[in-house]
C-alpha cells in the first residue's frame, strides 16, 4: 500500500466536516478518478493527502508513515507527492518556462547537467520542447500550454504520486486531449495518479477506479463500468454518464462494460450489420 487514509476527519469550522471519517487505500500505479458534486470534499481530500490540512482525527499514511507526525520529513515528501492545483497557471512567476520548471528541483542534490537534462526530458513529455517555446515567458503561453507547463513543474520532480485538481477546467478540446495523452504516458511509467474531474468521458477513458464522493464521504470506489452503468445512481449524485452509455441506451447497443468510443462504434456497426443481414 503506497498511501492510506484511515478514519480521516477534516473540518474548517467545528460545524461542518469536509472529510468525514474518510477511508481510502491507494495502490501503486493505479489511476484514481475522483468525482462528486461541488462541495463534496474532493479538493480538500487532495490537499489533505498533500499535507496541507492536518486531520482532526485519523491518519494519512505514506509508505506506512503518518505524514502529519512531528518527525515526518514533509519537504522530501512533497517531492514524492506532487499536486497540481486548479488553474495552476496562477502560480507562475519566472521569466521563462525552463526557469519555471527548474524552480521545484533547484534545491535538490542534482548536478546542473542532470538538472538540465531532467528539465529537457520533462519539456519533451509535455510537448513544450521546441526552442522557440522554451524561451517564452510562462505568461505568453496559450491556456493549454500553460496547463501543460504546470504539469511539467510537477513532473520534473518525478513524483511517485501525482494529485490533479480538475486539470481540464477551462481547456478546449485539443488542450484536453493533449493533457489526456500526457497522463496516459505518465500512467504507463507507474506513477500513481489521483485526479479530480467532473467529466465522466475522460474519467471513463483513463481511470482504473472511480471514487464518488458526497458530503465528505466515499459513496462508491469501483471500476468505471460499475459506477457509470447505474443511471439512477449517476443522476442522483449529479456525476453524469459517459456519452457512449447515453448513446448506447438510446440505440439499444450492449457495450459489455467497455465504454470506450472504439467499442461503441464496433458494437454499433455489428448491430447494424446484423440488422441488415436479417
Amino acid at each position: 500500500m503506497e498511501l492510506e487514509l484511515r478514519n480521516v476527519t477534516v473540518s474548517y469550522s467545528s460545524a461542518e466536516k469536509i472529510l468525514d471519517n474518510f477511508n481510502l487505500e491507494v495502490n501503486k500505479g493505479l489511476f484514481f478518478g475522483i468525482t462528486g458534486k461541488s462541495g463534496s470534499g474532493k479538493t480538500t481530500l487532495l490537499e489533505t493527502i498533500c499535507g496541507f490540512h492536518k486531520p482532526e482525527m485519523g491518519q494519512v499514511l505514506f509508505n506506512n508513515q503518518n505524514i502529519y507526525e512531528g518527525k515526518f520529513d514533509t519537504v522530501s515528501f512533497r517531492k514524492k507527492v506532487q499536486m497540481v492545483f486548479q488553474f495552476p497557471e496562477n502560480q507562475f512567476f519566472e521569466t521563462d518556462i525552463r526557469k519555471e520548471i527548474e524552480f521545484g528541483i533547484k534545491n535538490t542534490t542534482l548536478s546542473s547537467e542532470d538538472l538540465n537534462r531532467r528539465v529537457t526530458e520533462t519539456l519533451q513529455t509535455v510537448g513544450l520542447n521546441d526552442n522557440e517555446t522554451e524561451e517564452l515567458s510562462p505568461f505568453a503561453l496559450s491556456g493549454g500550454q500553460k496547463r501543460r507547463l504546470a504539469l511539467a513543474c510537477a513532473l520534473v520532480l518525478q513524483p511517485e504520486i501525482l494529485l490533479l485538481d480538475e486539470p481540464f477546467s477551462g481547456l478546449d478540446n485539443s488542450g484536453q486531449n493533449q493533457i489526456i495523452k500526457i497522463l496516459q504516458n505518465i500512467k504507463t511509467k507507474g506513477t500513481t495518479i489521483l485526479m479530480v474531474s467532473h467529466d465522466p468521458n475522460v474519467l471513463c477513458e483513463i481511470a482504473d477506479r472511480i471514487i464518488v464522493m458526497n458530503d465528505g464521504r466515499i459513496i462508491k470506489n469501483e471500476i468505471p463500468p460499475i459506477v457509470y452503468s447505474d443511471k439512477q445512481f449517476c443522476s442522483q449524485l449529479g456525476i453524469g454518464q459517459p456519452d457512449t452509455i447515453t448513446a448506447a441506451n438510446l440505440l439499444d447497443v450492449n457495450l459489455n462494460n467497455d465504454f470506450t468510443y472504439e467499442n461503441f462504434i464496433t458494437k454499433l456497426a455489428e448491430k447494424l450489420l446484423l440488422k441488415n443481414n436479417d
Binding site: E47, C50, F52, V75, R78, K79, Q82, M83, V84, F85, P88, N90, Q91, F103, G104, I105, N107, C153, A154, L157
Partner: peptide, 13 residues
C-alpha cells in the same frame, strides 16, 4: 493562501 499552497506543493519553503 492558495498560491502559497501551490508553491509549497512545488517545493518552495
Amino acid at each position: 493562501e492558495r498560491i502559497k499552497k501551490a508553491q509549497m506543493a512545488r517545493g518552495a519553503n
